[in-house]
């Protein structure tokens, strides 16, 4: 079955695409929704506009849809993007990186249902710690591009997910209920390299922007 990947460029969407591919499914396109609203319920990811770099090294076409990011309108924009991907790339289903958000997952399910597409959520209900370890086992290089929960601060921006990160997250999970995989929106990520890429993206630092008391966003520079 040909699949379109709902793609933010973070670990969850890239890893779900990887899982689908390793299980024999054909990845036909990536679908990114660029939201102008930083508080977007569905699509606020700091590095969303960098997905074109990832699409290039994945050798996949990227379907982009801009949205103002108003609560229900952004779902209409997602629906338009999914329907246009279905028409253009003849996909039979959508893959998402949803882990536990019923809000996000059920909205994508409804859109796929209306569009007559299968909806795949291969990371659904996955254990956070085990998932992070799986990313490392599968040679995913992931950095943080946003933090949005105390006690995470600007020092966490651009940090790589490695064994030390996993150990520290485990402590923060026990003490502050931070979800180890950031499923509660505690942090956002960007995949620099993984087995789906023909070559690694070159991360050349970036700017850290304070967005609130416990909110920092990293604007990455890539080569």
């Amino acid at each position: 079955m040909r699949l379109g990947v709902l793609f933010s460029g973070g670990k969850d969407s890239v890893y779900s695409a990887y899982v689908a591919k390793t299980m024999g499914y054909e990845l036909s396109c990536l679908i990114s929704v660029y939201s102008k609203n930083k508080e977007s319920f569905m699509f606020h990811t700091p590095s969303i506009r960098k997905t074109k770099f990832q699409a290039k090294v994945m050798g996949l076409p990227l379907v982009i849809r801009e949205t103002e990011g108003r609560k229900e309108d952004e779902l209409k924009d997602l629906e338009t993007a999914i329907k246009s991907a279905k028409e253009k790339y003849k996909i039979g289903g959508i893959v998402t990186g949803a882990i536990g958000s019923v809000y996000q997952a059920s909205r994508v399910q409804k859109i796929c249902d209306e569009a007559g597409l299968e909806c795949f959520n291969p990371l659904w209900q996955k254990d956070g710690n085990a998932y992070l370890a799986e990313l490392l086992d599968n040679k995913f290089e992931v950095i943080l591009t946003g933090v949005f929960a105390y006690p995470l601060d600007n020092k966490w921006i651009f940090r790589k997910i490695d064994k030390k990160f996993i150990a520290e997250m485990d402590v923060l999970n026990k003490k502050y209920k931070i979800h180890p995989a950031g499923e509660g929106g505690e942090f956002e990520t960007f995949v620099i390299n993984c087995p789906l890429y023909s070559r690694s993206l070159k991360f050349c630092g970036g700017k850290i922007i304070k967005e609130g008391e416990n909110a920092f966003r990293g604007e990455i520079k890539l080569k």
């Binding site: 079955m1 024999g24 299968e118 795949f120 291969p122 659904w124 209900q125």
Partner: peptide
Amino acid sequence: KEKLHDLEFVKPIEKV
């Protein structure tokens, strides 16, 4: 029917 759906509908049961 689809093996990829096992990860969404079977794995979480197995986990519990």
